[in-house]
Design a protein around this nucleic acid. Structure first.
Lengths: 347, 347
DNA sequence: ATGAAAGCGCTAACAT
DNA sequence: ATGTTAGCGCTTTCAT
């Protein structure tokens, strides 16, 4: 039942070497022969065996993408970018999910190594950089995704969260808001602390504006709502006129708390809001939410490019690191505030 | 640099066969020998080559899961279930995304066949059942996921959408609503027409209640909002007192339109709402939305079970088909309506 | 309990 | 342009 190159060769009246050539280097085969071999392949329903090919060729045409959370749209978009660029190079993508678990990460990496994948794109859970270094030593190129700008030994592609935090604040300042709140936490999450740092820097550079931190225990809609309820009175009193949320879930929760129930406030007239990540729900909120968008598919595509570079990199040259600047997407939640702008002009 | 069983054998002072036995049948090897071999493996950093193992053994320890939309939480949860159950059986999961594209589906299936995967779990895009039959003939077991209850030639695991639609309506009827709306479309989507059919049946069986269809062009929050605006006046007039949405995005849009802006209505007092899918945003809506939940992880786990059965199934017995019943999750959007219930009792 | 050896399906080097 | 052939790393008889 299993049909191999041998049967194809016999049927086409050629040698196995010629069949292999038709498969891999058809320009070196006479057209009439190619045709006969392809007929035989079609008639027999021959399908090449990748395991045999890989074993013999020593290299795989498969690369692995290991993400922190397959349920997160950020990573699914990154995966789309990876698949598209990989397909251009004839590579297949093995998609795996560590679910933020060190054990699952380790187990997936083990499988990838046994499979001798052509390379690994990974958002590391955190701890085990040593294992990734080991993989590199074993000859499997590794590219860090969405992390690792600070890991000189690895190629990496990430987004500048400090710049993103600064962009959110700059936008609010430019549209006339000066009494700002930053909602997010816990700060031990690198992305959160970077965004807060960028926000703080932007406020410091500008002068005359303030930024208060409103910490959250997690990045959820519920936590955003909780903090938003506390912000209502401050907005009403004029103590806060702009809010930056560390991600869009928080922003949606904040918006919901501000706009509904007792003592609802007006957005963007009384307070402007900027989220982070630009998830699809941000644009479809009651008042569509401005957000900081990361070039997700580009991140994936670039990761593949870096991987291809790694495969041929001279060990003496350091791995390449790419850091993207995030984009601000302006929506109604932070539309220019005429009152505020006038206030600034007449100050 | 590459270390193979041969080096391990030399280092441990045994034959390659013994190394293989330590790896695959350690009980047949003397404990002291096992120990020596494992030392050698550790010292050399030996990692087995799966391609060679698979080539020789003729079978793979990898199964493929091909989903319609990796961005859909339904499928990511199914994938979780698949991975968990597969891990129990020592199988690795290859996750791939067809993105509802026939071409991408075909291309992924080609790769899976070349890899000689142990089996394929697939939510088919639609057209190419013939290709799946071919894979089965080629000896690769196929299990249909979330579809194919009507395909007798395949093992399949799906959810009874007719029952789900009926459950949503029955719940509304039981809580005193009798003038119902079904929001969803286009009806050519099998899930939508099944849910509508179930809803219609439940209304017909009960008698004395009505169901109107409000078609949508797609299953989006925006379309839900559009239809919801039209429903407002009808709710106010008492022409509609219960709404079933074909999925939660539509339900969220409907709720938003009903609750906010001019002529806002009260929920659940004036109108009850039930969605479908139980996505996380359903529970965190302003008025948390009742929904029909599918046993997503169970679907994935069961698909793996069916695949294992397929591998050893006697061709004379037909493939097994599993159909799950969906669950109703009641939240505030359809909390019992005392006014309506009283109305029924006093009728 | 362990060793020796055949061979899975394929590619690439070499020969013709 | 095509044929011949040696392995890639591993598992699995079959001996011992």
């Amino acid at each position: 039942m299993p049909v191999s190159v041998r049967e194809v060769a016999a049927r086409a009246g050629v040698s196995v070497g010629t069949v292999s050539n038709v498969l891999n280097r058809r320009d070196q085969v006479k057209p009439s022969t190619v045709e006969r071999v392809e007929e035989a392949i079609a008639e027999l329903g021959y399908v090449p065996n990748d395991a045999a090919r890989q074993l013999r060729a020593g290299r795989s045409r498969t690369l692995a993408l290991l993400v922190l959370d397959i349920g997160n749209p950020f990573f699914t978009d990154v995966a789309r970018g990876v698949e598209a660029r990989a397909a251009e190079s004839g590579l297949t993508v093995l998609l795996a999910n560590s679910d933020e678990s060190d054990e699952r990460e380790a187990s997936h990496l083990d499988v990838f190594e046994r499979q001798r994948v052509a390379g690994i794109l990974v958002s590391p859970v955190g701890g085990d950089i040593a294992r990734l270094e080991e993989l590199q030593r074993h000859g499997i190129p590794v590219v860090l995704v969405d992390r690792g700008a600070d890991q000189p030994g690895f190629a990496s592609v990430s987004v500048d969260d400090v710049a993103g935090g600064a962009a959110a604040v700059s936008h609010l300042l430019e549209t006339g808001r000066t009494r700002l709140a930053f909602v997010g936490g816990p700060l031990r999450i690198g992305q959160v602390s970077d965004r807060f740092e960028g926000a703080s820097q932007a406020v410091a550079e500008r002068g005359g504006a303030t930024l208060q931190l409103f910490p959250t225990t997690e990045m959820s809609l519920e936590e955003g709502q909780r903090v938003g309820l506390g912000l209502k009175a401050m907005v009403e009193d004029g103590q806060i006129d702009g809010v930056v949320a560390a991600n869009d879930l928080l922003a949606i929760g904040v918006e919901r708390a501000l706009l509904f129930g007792e003592n609802a406030v007006h957005m963007p007239e009384q307070v402007a809001l900027v989220g982070y990540d630009d998830i699809s729900f941000a644009s479809s909120a009651v008042v569509p939410i401005s957000s900081i968008r990361q070039p997700r598919e580009m991140i994936g595509a670039t990761a593949v490019d870096l991987l291809l570079e790694e495969q041929t990199r001279d060990p003496k040259t350091p791995p390449r690191k790419v850091v993207f600047a995030p984009d601000l997407v302006v929506r109604a939640s932070s539309a220019p505030n005429d009152r505020g702008a006038v206030g600034v002009e007449t100050a």
